[in-house]
Design a protein around this nucleic acid. Structure first.
Lengths: 110, 110
DNA sequence: AGGGGTTATGTTAAAAAATACATAACGAGA
DNA sequence: TCTCGTTATGTATTTTTTAACATAACCCCT
């Protein structure tokens, strides 16, 4: 027996969950939405929609983009997004440990 | 901004989550699947399917039932189910506290 | 014997979420 | 000016999940 869980931030609607966190992290790393989606194995369309939703709820722009140029364009995270991603990573790590510890405590014999 | 989450026990497939926990608790309290579903506002059919799934995965019977009689029939939890429900309640309370504490720590200013 | 309330189960329909398809715009560089 | 890889967005399709409908069986009690 194991434990599974999902955790996400909301404000009326979803702001950020594990999927959004990973997407933002990969955009930061790759400098491109397209390349991030390739690494996550989701469609560009899907990623684009999620980013719009996140920004709509967070109320601040999270991803800055530009089109054209020899590289075709690119994307990067705003300072606010970088801060959010950083906090989420730390938060998520704590939650992960807490849940697994409690699970061991109560269900290790099952 | 708030935090939301779901946590559930699995063994290949889902065993027990908040919905199953509540369902089992209400069956225990009411002595009837039908009455439990009325209180939870779900259909009998849905509850019945969930119970079957839980039992299939947990591998032990969780709900004992009997039909007929003046009251029409009834249901009760097996000792194993009572133990499981009890542990889940304690586990869930710990997780709840841990997540909310971490959330406060990292996002209280947002 | 029949009524009443429950368990038991298959089948359908509806709603929601995820995925796929198609296409326009953009602009630096060749 | 044409190409290339990217952003941007609407629309359609498929898959998954959830809810609804219909009906049989059971049996104590009157």
């Amino acid at each position: 027996m194991r434990v599974k869980y999902k955790v996400w931030l909301v404000d009326e609607e979803v702001i950020l969950g594990d999927g959004g966190y990973r997407l933002l992290s990969l955009i930061d790393k790759n400098g491109s939405i397209r390349q991030a989606t390739a690494e996550m194995d989701i469609s560009y369309r899907q990623a684009w929609g999620r980013i719009r939703k996140m920004e709509k709820r967070y109320k601040k722009p999270l991803v800055e983009t530009h089109t054209g140029g020899q590289s075709g364009g690119g994307a990067s995270l705003t300072p606010e997004a970088k801060e959010l991603v950083k906090r989420y990573r730390l938060f998520r790590a704590e939650v992960d440990k807490a849940i697994n510890d409690s699970f061991q405590k109560y269900f290790s014999d099952l």
